[in-house]
């Protein structure tokens, strides 16, 4: 086993597409709950707890906002809890709001780990498969951003220390700010021309460009990819046949789930928990191996 983020970018992409799709296109409370649990526990596994908790406070705020807002605007449902301005606030719409809030938090948490796992390198790799040239353009953009930020700082302090922005008036400051921006643009153009020459010198115009990557697709990648695709197949079948449907309105339908529904729920649980399980398993193994060092 490997840590989740060490799998092939294509596997990671397939994974994130699947979990995001399933989290966004069902309102089945169990699915959403699984998704939320999986996303948050993976975040806890890869990041410092304090940072995750800080994020979670934001989710919680959003969560309460949505959970509370839904019943105020949607008056569907048959079980009134109380009346506000002559409108019923129903149990069904309150629960629906709660599920929506969980869904949104889950999706945000998935994006949170996506940002950390699918690094620019991996995106470039995937893009390189489609178009090597596009990939290199994106790569140089990524290179240029920190450079631009640094230069902007340099231009500001250089101008200040040479006395270009000595004017204290409001208008003077706006003007000096603008001229700093224009200096930054001039500098960027100059830089871009030089980079262009360097690209030409190394044959950017030649036909038949390839894309280099240090990623190799191994047996383990294949195993996980097959697992993901199998889970996808099951869940899509269930979605297609309506087995995973869940109705909040007019009243919450609590029926015994069919066989397909049970299987697909199990598959979803495994799918959502996969990164956290791989990560935690690897942490335990690492502790064991470390004792041998």
């Amino acid at each position: 086993m490997r840590r989740f983020d060490e799998y092939h970018p294509a596997v990671l992409l397939a994974y994130y597409v699947s979990v995001l799709l399933f989290s966004m296109f069902t309102v089945h409370p169990l699915v959403i709950l699984f998704s939320f649990t999986g996303a948050v526990s993976y975040l806890f596994a890869i990041d410092r707890k304090r940072r995750v908790l800080k994020d979670l406070w934001f989710y919680l705020f959003l969560f309460l906002l949505i959970a509370a807002a839904n019943p105020l605007v949607s008056h569907n449902g048959v079980t009134p809890l109380f009346f506000l301005n002559g409108q019923a606030v129903t149990l069904e719409s309150l629960l629906y709001g709660v599920v929506l809030a969980f869904m949104l938090s889950a999706v945000l948490a998935w994006f949170g780990s996506f940002n950390r796992v699918v690094t620019s390198e991996k995106i470039l790799f995937l893009l390189g498969k489609v178009s090597p040239k596009l990939s290199i353009v994106l790569s140089s953009a990524l290179r240029f951003l920190p450079l631009l930020r640094r230069k902007a700082g340099e231009i500001r302090s250089a101008g200040k220390a040479v006395g270009l922005y000595a004017s204290e008036s409001w208008w003077g400051r706006v003007r000096s700010g603008l001229s700093a921006v224009s200096a930054l643009v001039t500098w960027s153009l100059e830089q871009a021309v030089e980079t262009g020459v360097s690209m030409k010198a190394r044959g950017f115009r030649l036909k038949g460009r390839t894309h280099f990557s240090a990623f190799r697709f191994s047996g383990k990648d294949l195993a996980v990819l097959i697992f993901i695709l199998a889970a996808d197949a099951i869940v899509f079948t269930a979605l297609g046949t309506g087995s995973l449907q869940f109705a909040f309105y007019p009243r919450i339908a609590l029926e015994a789930p069919g066989v397909l529904a049970v299987i697909s729920l199990a598959a979803l649980l495994l799918l959502f928990l996969l990164p956290a399980v791989l990560e935690i398993g690897e942490n335990i193994k690492w502790r064991y191996y470390r004792r041998k060092i």
Partner: peptide, 24 residues
């Protein structure tokens, strides 16, 4: 500074070879 094209060292090293169409 200005002759560097890519954001990562590995990719920068590969840039010229990618142009030549070398295999991975």
């Amino acid at each position: 500074e200005s002759q560097i094209v890519a954001d990562r060292v590995m990719h920068e090293l590969a840039f010229g070879m990618e142009s030549l169409g070398l295999s991975n």
